[in-house]
Amino acid sequence: MKKLALFIFLITGVLLFSCKKSGLMQFTARSNVYFPVSPDKYSAGVADEKGSIVYGDFSNNAKDTVAVDTLVTNFGFFGNGPKEMYVLVTVSVMGDTSSVDRKVNLTVDPSSTVPAGIVSFDPATCIIRHGKSSASIPMKILRDPSLATNKYFVTLNLGVTDQLSTDYKGELVASSPKKLKTCLQRTYSITDNIPQPTWWVGGNSIGSYYFEEYSPTKMKFLTESLMIPLSFLLQNQPNLSIVGSYSQAYNCGLAKARKAGTPVMDVSLTTGQTFPMKSSMAGGTLCD
């Protein structure tokens, strides 16, 4: 009988609960705009011969870009020709997509060291389009002569708009769990020099095997004298069969210059001293 009483009591509770007057629950969260915390690549491009901007992905293809905390871009990626470069700044938004275009409030932080006029945005491109949860906003960078001797930094801030909030402040870095990395700022460094392929860093690298120790002078020899495309050398994982062929060409180029009495000279990165460029073991002695 006790069980029956308990049961009736519970059922009565359920019935009474349904009579509870409740206010309308409202969803109050807003869409937060943010920079992806750990971008594994970014896109940069220059105009082709017809004026179209042609972008390529740069991930770990040059030593400088390994440090993804600050994305380093370099006019040197594109040779001597282009006078302006575009870097796609990726911005994402939380939550569902929208049926309307949403403006992104993107500003340059006053702490930036880049001189005025070098970096700019077209406001018309600062939009997360309808149906999208991210946008790639072109940042235009002019090839100022001062970039050859200076490395500038530009920090971008994301701000609040009518449609987008900035409540997503940051997240812990996977490799360093105690470090909070901001999602509302992104820093780019901009320079104009000869980039170093990631596979040519250190004495035991692939590059050192095929071309001996890295130097900017050697990069210029490969790209200008041997006409090996810079874009090939900047690939993260170049085809080693081709690198092997280029290594033969490298040794042959040095041998021909030696025989002509005008050896190709190298400049040490560490001491600045000049010395005859070294042949590689991998390049063989075909032309000796």
Binding site: D48, S52, V54, P229, Q235, N239, I242
Partner: peptide
């Protein structure tokens, strides 16, 4: 296979790095 000699790399109209 890619006819890569001598050095014909370029970036195509779709942004692909052409080795």
């Amino acid at each position: 296979n890619y006819n890569t000699i001598p050095s014909p790399a370029w970036v195509d109209a779709k942004g692909n790095q052409m080795a």
